[in-house]
């Protein structure tokens, strides 16, 4: 306070004149500037610790819940029965699902957790199937080598069938692939020795050997997202809602309603006896 006493206040009305203020107390002014400069640079150097670590944990709560009844309660694995429905009549073969899947898991080129096949049937009942790069770059061109008239053509997205009787789990010699109590077939990459039995055993060719880790990998129906109340990423990004996912024990879920409807619902390779939880709506008999 002594500083202000020393400063001659020339201007009436209580507003100090700048020139006299500076002249009268240069030392105090320099002190203030230095304090500000040091304080400011310290703020830049020392990161604000408060709340940063906790924030990361709760960030996902900001994403609107997509599967009801998972957040904010104890996750009881035994009370869940998830099902996946692919609606063939709505798939436009854009490959959004493949792109999203590749990005979510950094899937290496040439391997696919999910892919989209294109079926073409001609009037002689020949069936042609192709899937250039698994559909990850979309379908830009029709098949030029097919000259005949096309009778029926459609896209079939493929992914892990999450069998209720999985043959991949049965053959694993080290207990690395397993069926969790909530019905997901997962791979424990720390246990997997990369023998490849499961890849041969899967009737749906859903598995591959990761070229870097040399362990088996496959679609997990985005287990990490489901446990946080979010839809699998392919379901989330599908622009035409051709992919649907939900809990069969939740009678309000879309999947439950579809599977209870009169639509033609089928599973792939039923006679293999794997009892998949992946259902196809509007699929033709030719699809394998």
């Amino acid at each position: 306070m002594s500083r202000t006493d020393k400063t001659p206040n020339a201007v009436s009305g209580g507003v100090p004149d700048m020139a006299t203020e500076l002249n009268g107390d240069r030392r105090a002014f320099i002190k203030k500037v230095l304090k500000g400069a040091i304080g400011g640079s310290l703020l830049l150097v020392i990161p604000l610790e408060a709340g940063v670590g906790e924030k990361q944990e709760n960030d996902f709560d900001k994403i609107p819940e997509q599967i009801p009844g998972i957040r904010g309660q104890e996750y009881d694995m035994s009370s869940r029965q998830f099902a996946f429905v692919v609606d063939i009549t709505r798939c436009i073969g854009c490959g959004s699902c493949c792109v999203a899947d590749k990005r979510e898991y950094n899937v290496p080129d040439g391997n696919y957790r999910t892919w989209v096949e294109r079926y073409v049937k001609d009037f002689d009942d020949n069936v042609y199937v192709d899937s250039p790069k698994g559909g990850v770059e979309g379908y830009q061109e029709p098949r030029p080598e097919l000259k005949g008239k096309i009778r029926d053509t459609f896209f079939v997205p493929k992914l892990c069938n999450m069998c209720k009787k999985p043959s991949c789990v049965q053959v694993c010699p080290v207990g690395a692939t397993f069926k969790s109590p909530d019905g997901f077939i997962l791979v424990d990459s720390k246990r997997c020795v990369g023998c490849g039995y499961c890849i041969q055993a899967c009737p749906y060719s859903a598995r591959f050997l990761h070229p870097v880790t040399r362990t088996a990998e496959k679609c997990t129906w985005c287990y990490h997202r489901v446990r946080k109340g979010l839809l699998p990423v392919c379901v989330h990004v599908c622009p035409t809602k051709a992919r649907k996912f939900g809990d069969m024990n939740d009678k309000k879920s879309e999947v439950y309603k579809i599977l209870r409807s009169h639509d033609v619902i089928t599973v792939l390779k039923k006679d293999m006896g794997n009892a998949p939880s992946l259902y196809y709506k509007g699929v033709r008999r030719e699809v394998v």
Partner: peptide, 23 residues
């Protein structure tokens, strides 16, 4: 739970979410 490592379920559930939402 069975002939596998139960912690593997938790490890898989803790994987990083890379796609968020339009919101």
């Amino acid at each position: 739970y069975g002939h596998y490592r139960a912690d593997a379920i938790i490890e898989e559930a803790d994987r990083e979410i890379r796609h968020w939402t339009n919101a």
